[in-house]
Design a protein around this nucleic acid. Structure first.
Lengths: 188, 188, 188, 188
DNA sequence: TGTTAAGCGAGACGGTACGTCGTGTCTTACA
DNA sequence: TGTAAGACACGACGTACCGTCTCGCTTAACA
């Protein structure tokens, strides 16, 4: 019932090849076949682990993001939010952004992958902001009734920028967006 | 030098087949081959008109959206914005939303298509909001320095919802989002 | 140096699964993987015993044919030959024929298997006829100079029928063929 | 309704690549993928023409055998038969024999291909012998009641040799076999 | 009575080939 | 020149077997 255990070196090879390919050629240049070729791993070995391209990419991303998002708690909503956004946006400017674009593309093509994406990535990010808002709410800094809307105001523009123009995600943009979100949070 | 003029019936057939397919099967079910088969048009006839799938979809969308976006001018920012968002969101709940998802998918795969999408669709929508903001600014209703950020706050969450959960785009959500944007607009 | 002895139940399971599969699905439906699955035996256990699919089938056939071919000696060439052919042909009409087809397919794909097939199956059958001919020759019933050609006249048509139309191998066909061979045998 | 006509150069390329591969590597070395690669033709182009490997090989063989089998009519059964067998056997000693082996392998794996093989190859060969026998029968040289058995006596040993030992198909063997068949033909 | 060498089920692994699908280009005949 | 039809090279898909290779466990015979 046990059988030969999966070789962790294979996992690594897949992840690494995926990252390389997506970095070199973008989402279009990533194919299961290509990953297999680049990693020197058989296609079966990949399909044994993942149901499709989306999952491979999602897992490759986890290489970076495996560490939980830090949720600063400085006692000031604006400061906490700004720290989180700057870090998150900074991530999106490199490979990370390309990966996120790829994940979005995949989710748009395969409804069932959307759920997985949500569960593994989106929800964690949302929770981080929700936590920050929770602390601020305790301090009376948040009058707005809905956390969800505030979170949408944070991540909506980010994905929008990922879709249209990744270079927009500067620290300045993070600051401007933070200010806007804080303003809404103070509105009852 | 002129030769046979293009048959307008072919244009229609392409658009209609595209809409049918995307309605029935979503983005994944749409292929140039499928469109040709469904419409009874040769692939060549399609490629003569469009450079790729993205353009076909973009043009098919124009069937609905060909009418310029109405930019209400009631003298009240909140009212104008709400009217625009309710109408826009309403559109996204049907085929229109699927089309927009398809366009996003296409843009994520082909950088050069992003520019076209921007030019033909995104920018028009942004201009509509910009116009509303312009009027409100004249009336002193807008203190926020950047129109662009306010516009991002409008459309970011919309695309975010298109990516994750189209059903979210209700009138209630339009109202909540409008309130938030208005609040930011009033912040200097 | 001794280790665990091979489990005879495994041998049986392999043979039985092979026979089942070949009976149910013909040669195309037989795979090492399938045999392992059906028999509940590991692939390794099969490869430990056999070098390839051909050998497995050859051994499975031996389940039936393990008894040496009976070489009747009635004192009459025609009678001896007819008895042998009727029995041999009768065998080819069932699973046995499918097995023989499979062996032929294997031999055609792998030259080195041809030798094995010859050694384990073909040569025994030829020897049986050779023996009958030897007795007849002693009695002066055979004038033809070459046993080998006579034997080819017996088995050539049989394999030819296995290739093209197994149902041809009736008792009537055995009789007609016997008469022909006897006629040739009498020719100097 | 017309469409682009099939490129005859593609047909040629497929046939030629098939022959090359089968000559170089035998039946085992022939794959649809290999043929496509060697010929510089897409797999689709092959599958558009043939239902499977068997048909490709069968058609490649037709390159040689397209000329109808010559059915000599010298007025002597033995002479006619010998000429036909010598020529046929001579063909089997080269690539032609490998092709025939391949066809047999294919037929053994796919029942439905057997019918095609019969129709396109086997039956023509049988007809050639049948014609020779017909002439001889008119001259009173044939007393045996069944043409079919006589034909089996000709081709049975040939395929048997193709299966086991192609080198056996010498002129001497053709002569010995002819003598045997003639002897049977004279038997009532 | 342990020790030890092989057998065993399970299943991962690198390969090779399968047959299908979609892309964008091309080549016909016809209009 | 436009058009429908359809061939074409290319590249990817997901699946099936191949024969080999670990694993952890079982099963004798030898020490």
């Amino acid at each position: 019932m046990t059988g030969r255990p999966r070789d962790p070196a294979v996992d690594d090879a897949i992840r690494q090849a995926t990252l390389q390919l997506i970095e070199e050629q973008g989402y279009k240049g990533v194919s299961m076949e290509g990953i297999a070729a680049r990693s020197g791993v058989s296609k079966q070995a990949i399909y044994r682990r993942y149901a499709g391209k989306g999952e491979v990419i999602l897992d490759a991303l986890a290489t970076f993001a495996k560490t939980r998002l830090p949720t600063p708690d400085t006692g000031d909503l604006r400061e906490d939010l700004l720290a989180l956004l700057e870090e998150t946006f900074a991530g999106q400017r490199g490979i990370n952004g390309v990966l996120n674009r790829a994940l979005a593309a995949e989710a748009l093509q395969d409804e069932s992958f959307t759920a997985l994406l949500n569960e593994r990535l989106i929800s964690h990010r949302r929770d981080a902001v929700r936590e920050i808002l929770g602390h601020a709410r305790e301090r009376g800094e948040v009058s707005h009734p809905s956390d969800d809307l505030l979170i949408d105001l944070v991540f909506g523009p980010m994905w929008y920028a990922l879709l249209l123009d990744t270079s927009k995600l500067t620290d300045a943009y993070a600051a401007a967006l933070t200010d806007a979100v804080v303003a809404v949070a103070r509105t009852p």
